[in-house]
């Protein structure tokens, strides 16, 4: 599995972005860029050559679900793996995210093992 993957981590809380970035580093992924909401992230995704998107749900500006829908609606980005990492834990929300085409869903607070497991699963499935 390639460790040169380029990640975009989208969360409105800088502490959470730092945590995710650190965990990705520990897993060997050092190419990580940050964005603080969907509105900032979407043009970055469209302009950059990102391989993987990790996004929060509840964010000001553009929520993670809307970002996910925008990614799936964009021909260039449609196939990008998206992991939702969020505190939103209602059944209907998880179903909604699945219907919108999310590849993985992790609820906060989470563990390093869960993140690794989901990343491996998504990346393994894409090969």
């Amino acid at each position: 599995m390639s460790k040169d993957l380029k990640f975009l981590v989208v969360d409105d809380f800088s502490t959470m972005r730092r945590i995710i970035k650190n965990l990705l580093h520990d897993l060997g992924y050092s190419n990580v860029t940050e964005a603080d909401d969907g509105k900032t992230a979407l043009p970055m995704l469209q302009a950059g050559d990102f391989d993987f998107l990790i996004t929060d749900w509840n964010m000001p500006g553009m929520a993670g679900l809307d970002l996910l829908k925008a990614v799936r609606a964009d021909a260039k980005l449609a196939k990008m793996p998206v992991l939702m990492l969020t505190a939103e834990a209602k059944r209907e929300q998880i179903v909604e995210a699945a219907q919108a085409g999310v590849n993985g869903y992790v609820i906060k607070p989470f563990t390093a093992e869960t993140l690794k497991e989901k990343l491996d699963k998504i990346l393994g499935a894409g090969k």
């Binding site: 929520a63 679900l65 505190a87 209602k90 059944r91 209907e92 909604e96």
Partner: peptide
Amino acid sequence: SAGQGPVVPGVTKGEVA
């Protein structure tokens, strides 16, 4: 769809994971 934030025991209604 804008998100409701973390589950708060005793406040959040509906089925939650």
